[in-house]
Design a protein around this nucleic acid. Structure first.
Lengths: 210, 210
DNA sequence: AAAAAAATCCCCCGTATTGGGTTATACCGA
DNA sequence: TCGGTATAACCCAATACGGGGGATTTTTTT
């Protein structure tokens, strides 16, 4: 029996019913063990030092320290632990905040509860489990607007500007004259109805032109 | 029988064995129909105008026009069609290029072939099917480096710089003096060992400090 | 082949920004 | 208490910036 080395899990979730439900579900699965569960981050940060789980299921909507703020704190004491976010809302900002801070997976509670087990297995295998709606949000964030008013060349130049390059550096790098770059930038500003690099970048990012 | 309105699919894939295999597999599934299959993009672009499929399975490694270059061309004539990329290699650049150009899903051929059917269903439902390894690449691209040499304040300022803001705008916005911003930038440059905004942004992005 | 769009280059102007040098103070967490 | 952090000051020369006028050539579309 491989029960000697189960995958260890800690649950941080304020709703007692859900917490106990997940605990029961996971413990009932062979090769998985819930070491501990907490109803808030404050307690968890103390207990986790001893628990040292491989995977943490972390609710986003928590009293006190929110789940997202907890991620860096957890990563600080347990850098190798995988964190899977649990939430009822698939708020876009939350998704990206959690991911940039180091969450490895993101599930909405509307998912079939058995998916939790699959997700735990998946992060341990180095994967990145996501609910269907979360995957959609993530993928959509990559999609560029196909209806940009900017031409190819203008888009190229605006991308360079967004990378912090000066007009003269852009000119050298693109093998065109500084005056040409200036012309393009003027046209970009007119098309985007802005008067500065800053606003051009903001406008372009908002509309996913770059 | 709901066979009257099957999910319509077109396959673009140069390997005849795979092409025929997928065609057979999909046609054998109730409620799915392969309208056509092509061995190259050139032919596909002509035929697609009539086919008008809901979903296209698109190989990345194709002779002539590559799969990635095909995406915008396909989107141009069929903006509403979902595109699922198929590939043997999970090359990072390819993944992000395909996604920014508008691919909705990304599967590696090492996946269980039955997953294809699930993926087709998933994009039609507005989802974003990904292989486990692809999901991992995507999620990892969001993760920030936790070992940044920059302080919180320095990181904040560098982010503003990356947004194209001038020192004076940063100062106003952060309610600190212009001289303070200058000091922070000087320190950022020293820590990152650079001498310009451009290089600071590049270095910070390379190391995922911002 | 003609018209339209995109890309290229030129000159002018005044103001603001940039990178770099040096020093200093208040605060705060280990 | 000590180093790191955030704050601020003063100096300087070089350049980058936004905006105003054009003009020409290449490419694309019709």
């Amino acid at each position: 029996m491989e029960n000697k080395n189960p995958i260890t899990v800690v649950i941080i979730e304020d709703d007692e019913t859900i917490r106990n439900g997940f605990t029961y579900l996971i413990n009932a699965t062979e090769n998985y063990k819930v070491l501990n569960s907490y109803s808030n981050v404050e307690d968890a940060l103390i207990g986790l030092v001893n628990d040292k789980p491989q995977v943490i299921l972390l609710d986003i909507e928590l009293p006190g320290i929110k789940g997202i703020e907890a991620i860096p704190k957890i990563k600080h004491i347990l850098p190798k632990t995988y964190i899977i976010m649990l939430t009822v809302y698939d708020n876009e900002d939350n998704v990206f905040n959690a991911l940039t801070k180091g969450a490895s997976g993101y599930l909405t509670k509307s998912d079939n509860t058995e998916k939790i087990i699959d997700a735990i297995q998946e992060v341990v295998n180095g994967g990145a489990p996501m609910s269907m709606n979360i995957a959609k949000i993530v993928i959509k964030s990559f999609h560029k607007n196909q209806n940009s008013p900017l031409t190819k060349r203008e888009t190229e130049i605006l991308e360079q500007i967004a990378n912090g390059k000066s007009r003269s550096k852009i000119a050298k790098q693109m093998f065109i004259d500084l005056e040409t770059v200036k012309s393009h930038i003027k046209n970009i500003y007119i098309k985007l109805n802005v008067h500065s690099r800053e606003d051009a970048i903001k406008e372009a990012k908002n509309n996913k032109y770059i």
